[in-house]
Design a protein around this nucleic acid. Sequence first.
DNA 1: GTCTATAAGGAGATAGAC
DNA 2: GTCTATCTCCTTATAGAC
Lengths: 233, 233
Amino acid sequence: MTTSPEPDRKTAILDAAETAFADAGFEGASLRRIVREAGVNLATVYYYFESKEGLMLAVMDRRFRPLREEQLSGLDALEQAAAGQPLAVEAILETLLMPTLRLVGTGSVRQEAVKRLIGRVVTEPNPQIQQLLVRPHSVMRTAYLQALQLSLPDLPMPDLVWRMEFIWGALGFILCNPAKIEMVTAGVCNPADTETVFQQMIRFFGAGLKAAPVSRQRLAARRTATARKTGRA
Amino acid sequence: MTTSPEPDRKTAILDAAETAFADAGFEGASLRRIVREAGVNLATVYYYFESKEGLMLAVMDRRFRPLREEQLSGLDALEQAAAGQPLAVEAILETLLMPTLRLVGTGSVRQEAVKRLIGRVVTEPNPQIQQLLVRPHSVMRTAYLQALQLSLPDLPMPDLVWRMEFIWGALGFILCNPAKIEMVTAGVCNPADTETVFQQMIRFFGAGLKAAPVSRQRLAARRTATARKTGRA
DNA sequence: GTCTATAAGGAGATAGAC
DNA sequence: GTCTATCTCCTTATAGAC
């Protein structure tokens, strides 16, 4: 299973753990299987990473930190070039999606593992692992919400925030299990085809973001109608 | 923790397991904690459900079967009333989303657990559990793809299929961890507010589905440009 | 830094009494 | 149907030799 001789044991563990966590999640992955795959002793994990949670943290940090930096610097470059003019929604989305879908600088086997890892982490049930991502994620959220708000001045904040959640969810789901998607769509969708995934997302998310906001009156009217029907207050 | 006296042990186990699987996933949930919560003996699980996997199957079947039936009968009623006329995209989406977000007939504690369970199951890593959902899911997929294709005759099948995957993903993510969403959005999004979630989804998904298809020429052009830049064939 | 050996405990599952 | 007791296996984690 090892694709190439690892330069050092630490990297070997990180690579094996990356695949294991991406495939089975934090609880589902076992350190014993990871060290067997990496060709190192179990105690080595504790020497380098202190605990299973420490290993997960290192695995995520190695990939997500540069990814976030690429996204934020891409967004920043866009804003610099525009000099105060509102940006195209699609251009903003490109700086968010393209680094994620492409994951430059990593080999093809690792690249696919990292994409699955992102999806897995987004949907991770373990509260400790979730907690590790709250802070970095909130930096991203704020930057993209600000940029999008300038481009969509007529969209109320709650609508924009909901739409961003839908985008995180759809992105995470697609990355999570490419094999499943290819199977259930009978090969119509090929998640490995980065350019197609990107174009499809841009169209769908772009149109969704630019849709008219949800009317507050309509919402209130429907809510009371529903309440009357189901008999709740 | 037990909210009400359970009529029978089987139901008590199902209820406790539902919450456990929804919160921790299949691997993360422990039978010993489930039986402690349900107030029954460990062996009872094996008497009624044969195995942990059998329990998971029963937990899913109890909720998802009636849910699917409600969705499909809602879509069917819509098609009958339209008598061959293409349906409004939003109306189709409503029959898909509303039963999921509402989950009629269940109490509030259970209702929230079931919603989390759906999200959890959609992103479940364990291949055995995934396998259990392939067949019922494919029935749903086909029905909704057919209905949407009639309403969106100019949208090529691949585009429609991709967009449906985005919708499953976004829906699953929102259901998966409502507490996390409420926290990261600082209370701007309240996933318990069914009517708002529904309206926001209808707007976003409806606009996304009705967007122009991805141009095949543009895709081909970008693909060669990207390949040239990154140096791949 | 790397190893062996082992602690300490939780997991799913089952046999057999009642 | 329900229980106790237990089997077997695997888990994370650590102590201490080299």
